[in-house]
């Protein structure tokens, strides 16, 4: 029973069970980036899903007219920080795929600025991922990926591509930017899938 062993453990406090292995809790929001911050006006913003048979695009106003979810979630960066209970608003990938048919199982997310990251489609659907445009009640700041970023909180946060502009369906799982350069193809924080 835990109340017996706790006194002998020598630990001053219990580890937060919401923290995956190797992660440390932070209260600020560190910025990590692979290049300059793109300056994208929502008037010029467009989001496109490309499949084997064509494409579906939304401009900003069309995107805002879709069903919008409120999301409260923990996020985990591969550089060992985690943030608990973050608040977002965005459009579920499930909502977007109501308008799209594909037989392909894998996705490459593309961003303004050229960044890419790969995620299997079944890890984006089923209430697991969003295109988010608000953080903590405010429009998403450009340095955090605004106007909109992918939000895939069950994977390390490099998969939550900042400045996202579209999803490309793929028949096989191809590595994105960081995945070609040493990081794990999948990136599950609970399995510590950090690197190759």
């Amino acid at each position: 029973m835990s109340f017996i062993t706790r006194g002998f453990s020598g630990r001053s406090r219990e580890r937060d069970e919401r923290l995956p292995p190797g992660q440390t809790l932070v209260h600020d929001f560190p910025v990590l980036s692979a290049g300059p911050t793109p300056d994208i006006d929502t008037a010029d913003w467009e989001f496109t899903i490309r499949t084997e048979s064509g494409s579906q695009s939304w401009n900003w106003d069309e995107f805002m007219a879709l069903e919008i979810d409120e999301v409260s979630t923990d996020i985990h960066c591969v550089t060992h920080w985690s943030k608990l209970g973050t608040s977002w608003r965005g459009v579920s990938i499930d909502t977007l795929f109501e308008h799209v048919e594909t037989g392909y199982d894998y996705v490459m997310a593309h961003s303004y600025g050229g960044y890419t990251t790969n995620v299997p489609l079944d890890e984006l659907r089923g209430g697991k991922a969003w295109v988010a445009f608000e953080f903590d009640g405010e429009p998403l700041e450009p340095e955090h990926g605004g106007p909109a970023r992918l939000l895939v909180p069950h994977l390390y946060f490099w998969k939550s591509a900042k400045w996202v502009r579209g999803l490309e369906m793929m028949p096989t799982d191809e590595p994105g930017f960081w995945e070609q350069n040493g990081y794990h193809l999948h990136g599950d924080p609970w399995k510590e899938e950090r690197y190759w």
Binding site: L32, A34, P36, V78, W158, W178, N181
Partner: peptide, 9 residues
């Protein structure tokens, strides 16, 4: 050079 904790680009 864009250097962050994730890597250097």
């Amino acid at each position: 050079v864009y250097a962050s904790d994730a890597g250097t680009v």
